[in-house]
Design a protein around this nucleic acid. Structure first.
Length: 421
RNA sequence: GUGGUUGUAGCUCAGUUGGUUAGAGCGCCUGGUUGUGGCCCAGGAGGUCGGGGGUUCGAGUCCCCUCAUCCACCCCA
């Protein structure tokens, strides 16, 4: 295929009618999240690099090898956002967050990670995310998950699973790591290379290694819930009971840890079997992030879901795409002198309150060619205004489905459309 | 970053052990109706066989390199 006109690897052009599916998804998100009192926030697509490094964690996979980072003309290091939370926290802090304030926001848009593309993984991908910033309240964690479940329900995605775990508080980290190291150290020799390295760099991650040999060992590893402090245990119990009350089904996933450093307490992932190797439909949890320029951390809970993956899930369920015709009305002109009047007629319809999508002949082709075009565009109605109609001050109005057509006075064309559209 | 897969017309794909001007279906255009679409019929346009190099009398077919696709690993949405 032609190479220079192709989009960059891991990116793509999105055309109708697929765009219609995306718009529908976005509309559903706005409706559902709005119903929970969340408002839309649009943050920049790039930020100072440290906005991401400091909140996501400089030891994480995302920061170490996946970010699109560049220098601007002033020599500042900037980065295309690899996820949404860091920017939202920066924006919330910038807008002023008083003690006791709660900011509920959602966002949607492109994110960028320099990974190798695969099923459900793109370099430019699109997330819809939600953040409740302010209170550290387990009920909000539960409500957040319930909200996403409702969203899935409304867009017809069935068969997903909610996986839930806790990471404990930051203060637990040293103790948790020590306990896990004590468990893994004697068995490290039997585990994969990555895990042997992780023993020193990131013990937590050993818990969700997918290597078979490692999994056999991990099964017997101490569970997070048993390693964290009493406060964390109580918090987690509260999240679970709230979910029960909200009627949300979930599964405990003792080995779920997630890849970003800012998480505390609740972490969750929603998986779906129709996605391929990357089976996460959404992921999120509670976090503690120090916004740039601040010295006090900000509490929050949220999640992000991948639009591409939501669409994949829908497709795996056989949910039809919403193909829609390109036009509702086509205006046919016959003869050079009738083209301009035809365009004027089209303009009149477009300016009316009918809300019809109108295409009109611009180059004076044969009637057959124009009718074919009208048919191809999916136009339900055709208005024919040739030279003889112009002379008589009339318009021939045709219903494509029934093939019936009538001649009406030019002034009555809009009225005909109103009753036949 | 590693491994595998695929790359022929706008789309989906054929293309026999390398052999003359590269094919089909769909789509598109024109005509069959001096002003009427869909169905049908006839005709037509459209291809640097992803790109570069090599082997050969001869390469879409074989070899090397490169680019891109899809998938998997890593990790994640």
């Amino acid at each position: 295929m032609a190479s220079s006109s192709e989009p960059l690897p891991g990116t793509s052009d999105l055309w109708e009618p697929e765009v219609g599916d995306w718009v529908a998804l976005e509309a559903a998100a706005r409706r559902v999240f709005g119903a929970y009192g969340y408002g839309e926030l649009r943050t920049p697509i790039f930020e100072r690099t440290d906005v991401f490094v400091r909140s996501i964690g400089d030891e994480t996979e995302v920061v170490q090898k996946e970010m699109y980072t560049f220098e601007d003309r002033g020599g500042r290091s900037l980065t295309l956002r690899p996820e949404g939370t860091a920017g939202v926290i920066r924006a919330v802090a910038n807008s002023g967050l008083n003690q006791g304030d709660e900011k509920r926001v959602f966002y949607m848009g492109p994110m960028f990670r320099g990974e190798r593309p695969a099923a459900g993984r793109r370099r430019q991908f699109h997330q819809i995310g939600v953040e409740a910033v302010g209170p550290r309240d387990p009920v909000i964690d539960a409500e957040c998950i319930a909200m996403f479940v409702q969203f899935l329900d409304e867009i017809g995605v069935t068969g997903s699973r909610v996986m839930l775990n806790t990471r404990g508080l930051g203060e637990d980290r040293a103790q948790v790591n020590a306990a896990l190291r004590a468990f893994f150290a004697p068995r490290a020799a039997e585990m994969c290379e990555d895990c042997q390295r992780r023993l020193d760099t990131n013990v937590l991650r050993m818990l969700d290694c997918k290597n078979e040999a490692c999994q056999a060992i991990v099964v017997d590893a101490p569970k997070m819930i048993d390693l964290v402090c009493d406060e964390s245990r109580a918090f987690f119990a509260s999240v679970c009971s709230s979910l029960d009350q909200l009627g949300v089904d979930y599964e405990l996933a003792p080995r779920l840890v997630r890849g970003l450093d800012y998480y505390i307490h609740t972490v969750f992932e929603v998986t779906h079997s129709g996605l391929g190797a990357q089976d996460a439909l959404a992921g999120g949890g509670r976090y503690l992030i120090v916004p740039p320029g601040a010295n006090k951390p900000v509490d929050g809970v949220g999640f992000a879901t991948g639009m591409e993956r939501l669409l994949m899930a829908r497709q795996s369920l056989g949910l039809a795409q919403t193909a829609r015709p390109e036009a509702d009305v086509y205006v046919v002109s016959l003869g050079e002198t009738s083209v301009a009047p035809g365009l004027a007629l089209a303009q009149e319809i477009r300016r009316s309150d009918l809300g019809l999508r109108v295409r009109a002949e611009t180059s004076g082709r044969s009637m057959k060619a124009q009718m074919r075009t009208a048919n191809r565009l999916g136009a339900r109605l055709v208005l024919i205004q040739g030279e003889s109609e112009l002379a008589a001050g009339e318009v021939v109005c045709k219903n494509m489905a029934s093939s019936e057509q009538v001649s009406v006075p030019r002034a009555g064309a809009l009225a005909w459309l109103r009753t036949n559209a």
